[in-house]
Structure formats: C-alpha cells, structure tokens
Amino acid sequence: MTETLANALLLVGSFFCLVAGIGVVRLNDVFSRMHAATKAGTLGLALICIAIMLLADTWLHLAEAVFVFLFMIASAPVGAHLIGRAAFHNYQPMDPKTQADPESEPFRHPVRLPDSSLPTSELVAEPSHKSPDDPDNG
C-alpha cells in the first residue's frame, strides 16, 4: 500500500518536473519562465521528497528527506524573487502582451539610500560593498 502510494507520488512529481522543463523552453519571457520553473519545479521536488519519506526505513533517512524538502521550499521563492528583480531593473524584454500598472514604473529605478556609515569623500565615488536598501535578499 505504502509502496504503491510512493510510486504514484514519484510519477506525479517527475511529471511536474517535466512540465517545469517544458515551460522554461516554451514560455516567452523571463517572468513567465520563472512561473514555470519555480512553481512546477517546487511541487515536483516536494512530491518526490514525500515519496522518499514514505519509503524511508530509518529515522535518519526520513530526516534527510525532510531537510532537502525544507531547504528547497525555503530557497526557491527567494531565488525567483532575486532573478525577477535583476531582470526587471535591467529592462529585460517582456512578452508584448504584458500590461503594467502605471505605478510599476518607479520600481525600475530603486532609490539608493545614502549610506551614512561611510565617509563622504570624493575618492569614494560609489560605495562598493552591499547596497543598503534591499531588505530581504536572503
């Protein structure tokens, strides 16, 4: 019974991984591709990890599957967010059918808040370490 369920989960999970791959080839701009890669890929991985958990014979094996599951679930959306941000700031071409809210234009040019911890000298033309205004990049 458990094995049948696990096998079914493995099949469905690999189907979703296949959908993610086809989506990346078939859709036509960065953002749509990220929809396919993030959602379908994450669900495929989740289903396969659940199948592994069902088939695990010791607690250690179960914990390993849980770890893989947790790491990927936590990191996939953040990665997608960062890729989307970089693509949007760099004017990546979009699907011509895309419409945008008028309020979305200011997002192209993020306001770099002045970093008060640095000395303001002419030699330092641009602060070279991390930018101060991204609240959640991992």
């Binding site: 953002f31 990220m34 929809h35 993030t38 959602k39 994450t42 996939a76 959306p77 997608a80 967010h81 989307g84 941000r85 949007f88 997002f107 993020p110 609240p135 959640d136």
Partner: peptide, 11 residues
C-alpha cells in the same frame, strides 16, 4: 511567489 498565477518581482 508560490500561490496561483503570481510571482513577486520587487519591493
């Protein structure tokens, strides 16, 4: 990002 149809781009 992981709910139907939508994906966060920027804050």
């Amino acid at each position: 990002t992981l709910t139907p149809g939508t994906l966060t781009v920027d804050v």
